[in-house]
Amino acid sequence: MTKKIRTYSTEFKGEAVKKIADNNGNVSATAKQLGIAMQTLSNWQNKANECKLVGTKQYDPELMAIIEENKRLKRDLKVAQEEREILNEEG
């Protein structure tokens, strides 16, 4: 039995997060009204609070670009450190 994965538009996610405020911050009631899992809505709310959810007024594309660059730099650093360790072991 395969489980169907539902995808939601950025507009829907943004509106869903806004609707939480209409329900006095009640994520559970909002999720029931929208017919989505409470954890899904909670995840969207957390992303919105971190300015990472596209479709919300809090979303900051510059912040997202910085976060992505930071991830890339951490990966590059890890590779460089591993290469240095290999060279030190050979030397």
Rank of each mutant, 00 (worst) to 15 (best):
S9Y: 09
L77C: 10
E50F: 05
T40Y: 01
T10M: 04
E15V: 07
I66S: 03
I67G: 07
L34H: 05
V54K: 15
E90G: 07
N23R: 03
E89Y: 14
K57G: 09
I5H: 13
W44Y: 06
L77E: 01
L87S: 11
E69R: 12
M64V: 15
Q58L: 11
W44M: 01
T7C: 12
L63G: 02
K71A: 08
N88C: 08
R72A: 15
A65L: 06
N23V: 00
Y59A: 04
N88E: 14
F12K: 08
A29V: 03
A29F: 03
N88Q: 15
L41M: 00
R72Y: 14
N70R: 13
W44T: 04
E69L: 08
S28H: 03
R72I: 13
L34W: 10
R75T: 10
Q33C: 07
A37Y: 03
D60I: 11
A29R: 13
T40P: 00
S42P: 14
T56E: 09
N23I: 00
L77Q: 06
M1E: 10
T56L: 05
E90P: 06
Y59T: 11
G91S: 06
K78V: 07
A21H: 00
I5C: 09
A37Q: 12
L73N: 09
Q58V: 07
V79G: 01
A48M: 03
E62K: 15
S42A: 11
G35S: 06
I36N: 00
E68V: 02
A37F: 04
N24P: 00
T30I: 05
T7P: 04
E15G: 08
R84T: 05
L41D: 04
I5S: 08
T2Q: 11
L73C: 09
L87T: 11
N49D: 10
T30W: 04
I36C: 06
N23M: 03
M38T: 08
T7R: 14
E89L: 14
K71V: 10
M1T: 12
V27M: 06
K52Q: 12
E11P: 07
K74R: 09
Q58W: 13
